[in-house]
């Protein structure tokens, strides 16, 4: 194991465009600032980026097999694929999936899937077992259930890296209450190791690191 809170191999803090930022090596995809092969990882556009930036211990070391739920346009996925090995990217909406395809074109170990993360049986015939990490950022109600349902893919010593969006559960409730409920619902399948508000980068979001029970 690496030391707690360490960045995964392949993610570095580098000065790009006059400011120290997280960066990975790979093909640029969304107009982010670059320095040679390095491309800045903007924590304001990526919840996983925000979790790393705020020092959460993600347990990632680089070279993992990853299942990414809620890949959207592939902003975060592109960085994950830069440092991970096989990366399965699940996205349900066709429009963002089109951008995700552009990201996947240049990354031979990134596998885009147009699937609903709430129905893992529709992609269990493609996604392999015992993945090292599940990264989840789905803007739908029932975020805890999605994580629990997808537990079947995760290795027993793997990590769930979850960004909870309070507004997706219930816009009218106090985010703290929503987060408490989500954490309770997670308990049937996961042990929560760390949780932190990501408000510096994403309003009303909670970052969670958990491991399977």
């Amino acid at each position: 194991m690496s030391e707690p809170g360490a960045l995964p191999a392949g993610v570095e803090r580098r000065v790009i465009d006059g400011r120290e930022r997280l960066a990975t090596r790979g093909e640029a995809v969304y107009g982010e600032p670059t320095d040679g092969p390095w491309r800045a990882w903007d924590p304001n556009r990526s919840k996983l980026g925000a979790m790393l930036e705020s020092g959460m211990d993600t347990g990632l070391e680089g070279g993992e097999t990853v299942l990414y739920l809620g890949a959207a346009s592939g902003t975060t996925v592109s960085h994950v694929a830069d440092v991970a090995d096989a990366t399965y990217a699940v996205e349900f909406a066709p429009r963002p999936a089109r951008d995700l395809l552009e990201v996947a074109e240049g990354r031979p170990r990134l596998f885009p899937l147009l699937k609903d993360a709430r129905q893992p049986e529709t992609y269990a015939h493609v996604v392999e077992t015992d993945v090292d990490a599940i990264v989840q950022d789905v803007a739908t109600r029932g975020q805890a259930r999605v994580a629990v349902e997808n537990r079947r893919f995760l290795a027993d010593d793997g990590r769930l890296l979850l960004a909870v969006k309070a507004r997706s559960e219930d816009v009218t409730r106090d985010p703290d209450e929503v987060f408490a409920d989500v954490l309770t619902d997670l308990e049937s399948a996961y042990e929560v190791l760390e949780e932190r508000r990501l408000d510096d980068y994403h309003v009303d979001h909670l970052g969670v690191v958990a491991r399977p029970r």
């Binding site: 269990a124 493609v126 392999e128 077992t129 079947r152």
Partner: peptide
């Protein structure tokens, strides 16, 4: 195969 296939659980597909 990718679109319509189903499985209850994953396996070591590779």
């Amino acid at each position: 195969a990718l679109e319509n296939g189903r499985a209850d659980g994953p396996a070591d597909w590779p």
